[in-house]
């Protein structure tokens, strides 16, 4: 899933302080799972904003809604009939949802309520960590199912570097060395010999470096 973190309330207030009618829109997908932008967080943010504006003696109307998704037209369209009632929208979706909202409602200011962080997993409740950077050319088959692009601080394809110590990365003792994990798993799979194959220079054109990406599937296109 896409993992996000709540923005500090002060930052959100600073963005929306000049508006008088706000709609806080949550998303029922990834940001709900990572507890940054679902129905619950919409309620918490809306209440905090109401309290803030009340204390400031300012009348600001704040409504709440949570859509099934903000990255699909179908669900964004649910706001069509009421969007004009609002001066602005605070979207608690990931950066994808915020942008699709802005594209869909061209005349309405849309502000992000979360910082979108990465594609990752729930290790345990309250702990999410990165697993994928969407490089567009998956190499997990060669790296024992552990991604050095997203999990090595230097994204080394032929790691580990000299900074790997006791299974941890040189930049933080709280961070596993991805290459230690790869080697441990290669050993477990009895494939340690694979380590000596040199990973070729990567074609990064399928990654961010190649510019904004589009996937077109003519077979499913309507």
């Amino acid at each position: 899933m896409i993992v996000a973190e709540k923005k500090p309330i002060e930052e959100i207030i600073d963005m929306v302080k000049d508006h008088e009618k706000l709609l806080v829109v949550g998303c029922n997908e990834c940001v709900t799972v990572c507890e940054a932008g679902g129905k619950k967080e919409v309620g918490v943010l809306a209440s905090a904003l109401r309290m803030y504006f009340m204390n400031q003696g300012k009348k600001v109307d704040i409504d709440e809604i949570t859509l099934e998704r903000q990255c699909d037209h179908e669900y964004l369209e649910e706001l069509r009939a009421r969007i004009d009632q609002y001066d602005a929208v605070i979207s608690l979706a990931c950066g994808v949802g915020v942008q699709f909202m802005a594209e869909t409602y061209f005349n309405t200011p849309v502000y992000p309520g979360v910082n979108t962080c990465f594609m990752g997993v729930t290790e345990e409740r309250g702990v999410w960590s990165e697993r994928c950077q969407g490089c567009g050319q998956c190499i997990l088959g060669r790296t024992a199912g552990i991604c050095p692009i997203s999990r090595c601080a230097k994204r080394l394809l032929n790691g580990p570097c000299g900074g790997s110590a006791k299974g941890k990365c040189e930049i933080s003792k709280d961070l596993d060395c991805a290459w230690q994990l790869i080697i441990d798993r290669l050993q477990e799979l009895d494939r340690l010999d694979d380590y000596e194959e040199i990973a070729p220079i990567k074609d990064w054109s399928t990654e961010r470096a190649g510019g904004p990406r589009t996937v077109v599937r003519e077979d499913v296109r309507q």
């Binding site: 032929n158 580990p160 570097c161 000299g162 900074g163 790997s164 110590a165 006791k166 299974g167 060395c177 230690q180 080697i183 441990d184 050993q187 340690l192 380590y195 000596e196 040199i198």
Partner: peptide, 16 residues
């Protein structure tokens, strides 16, 4: 550096 078991394979890889 760790892991020690790949330190020599890693040298072999650099030579290759």
């Amino acid at each position: 550096a760790d892991p020690f078991e790949i330190r020599v394979p890693r040298l072999a890889k650099k030579i290759a």
